[in-house]
Amino acid sequence: MSGELERPGAEPSPDFLLQTRGAHRDLGAYVVAAAFDRSGAQAAFALGDGTVRLVAGEEWREIAVHDGAVLALAAGASGFVTGGDDGRFRRVTSAGEVGDIAEYGMKWVEHVASAQNVLACAVGRRLHLFDAAGTPLKSLDHPSSVTGLAFDTKGKRIGASHYNGASLWFVASKSDSPRVLTWKGSHTAIAIHPGGEAVVTAMQENALHGWRLPDEQHMRMSGYPSKTRSLSFTHNGRWLATSGADGIVLWPFFGGGPMGKPPVELAGGDGVTCNFVACHPGHDSCAAGFSDGLVVLADIGSERILPVASPGRGAISALAWSPDGTHLAFGSETGFAAIVDFSKR
């Protein structure tokens, strides 16, 4: 294995980027998700106390959004959309105004996603789609609860993971019958290849399952010591970065892979679990957050690791890049949140 990292106390300080190019706060509640709006001008952190913190420049604003915990966050057409355990699917504008898109009573709104002109939320077994203004388009049923959502790059299709497989829906289709990708077992997260070549899910049994879309060949990626919670393809689809091991596990999706190819493992070797991964929107690099609070940026080609934040601020639970890849936002289970600026100076 390569790309090992000295920690803690390595020279220079692993906090160098955070200290010199970062803004950070202790928000006092579990950071459930982080996201940037489509312009990249504003970041948002969704918290377990029901608030969303909007960050633009130096300003951090606290907005009360859900009565309970925020469970999911995504960029909206403008501003953000959120799901909560109060059964609401809501929007938060960049000015901090909050409004309902839909309300589902006692059921949790566990997953939200968005594409250019579509908003989506999952509530139990149902996936609800809305246009950018929040007008309901359709509701789509699954055989069991939806555990993850992902749009394809163009926003034409949306994938939902669930028990015994995943369903792939055309957003604009009139027929509303999904392409069902079947594999026995409980699938708990989903990612769609940027080129539309594959769908990959994480499974209850510490493994990934994939379907190559043209021919539906099955792929199985296993060997994880714990469950994968986070899946992220690189911008060009060459690599799939995953959490769940003691480093970033990257599966090659080129040259016939991932079948029969070993993954590349970066920033590992010290027994600390990688909790979260987010590939850069423009380069073959991947940000990763660990269960001890360490955040790194890994360059896949050179296998070099750049420390972003040192361990000690709580297990990393959220990680997101701005659309242009100049800013990285991350947060931890104990309420630490930061935005680091990677732009040229």
Binding site: A69, D85, Y163, K184
Partner: peptide, 29 residues
């Protein structure tokens, strides 16, 4: 939601909904 595990154990089932709910509740621990 009772899910079978793919671990070769014929009677091993879990409550998939509880795994999600416990995870969700821990955000407001």
């Amino acid at each position: 939601e009772v899910f079978e595990m793919n671990n070769g154990c014929i009677c091993c089932t879990v409550r998939g909904d509880l795994i999600r709910i416990v995870g969700g509740l821990m955000k407001r621990r």
